[in-house]
Amino acid sequence: MKVLVCVKQTFDTEAKIELKDGKINDAGINLIINPYDEVAVEGAIQLKEKGIATEVVIVSAGADKAMDAIRTALAMGADRGILVKQDSAADEYARAVALADAIKKENPDLILAGHVAADDGSSQVPTRIAEILGLPHVNVITSIEIAGGKATCTSEADGGTAVTEVSIPAVISSQVSWNEPRYPSMKGIMQAKKKPVATVDAIAVENKVKVLEFALPAGKTAGIKIEEDPDVAAAQMADWMKNTVKVEVK
């Protein structure tokens, strides 16, 4: 079974965001695999270790530097990669079109991706890919069982946990609580350098969503800070909660 994992290169979640010339400034920012995608990579590698998957292919749509994200996934244990070269300003639609095209040519049995990207927070791309390819999908999974041409997925749902079965091929998106991604070993990093990565150009499609402007949120400012004995502090805080916030006590 061939498993394909879509990964996006994103800013480190600890990164501070600044604007430069009205755009998000990426200078000096540490770039990582989107944490939700990293979990999908780990999930794919575990399927291979269990003997369910035979090959794990990483696909990333992005600028040349997205190659680093692919190499990291290869160092974790994936077999080969595909970089779909695309402008970093591509929207969710354009990304999905580009990725779906690359995926179609690979004809995988299972497509994994994070359910959301830590940068744009859109949670659109995996579902859009499924629609383009005419495949079933399940989002936000925390575990998966593959047997008899079906994927049985446990996922985080509104107000509970859902178990959903779909036939494969299917697009499955991961929640971060699915697994704990491994750190690449030194041996893995060495091997990753020799693993094949193909580079293709993205299908040229126009964005559907136009960004008008970026801004930084009005920063919250520090209010009252007290350093008192616990009983005094608690009384003042209770007073603030009752009179300023006007909380209701059950």
Binding site: A15, I24, A118, D120, G121, V209, L212, E213, P217
Partner: peptide
């Protein structure tokens, strides 16, 4: 839209 989990904001135009 709040991007980077609210560290920045993006104003986007959607037609359709």
């Amino acid at each position: 839209r709040a991007i980077y989990a609210g560290k920045a904001l993006a104003k986007v135009e959607v037609t359709g």
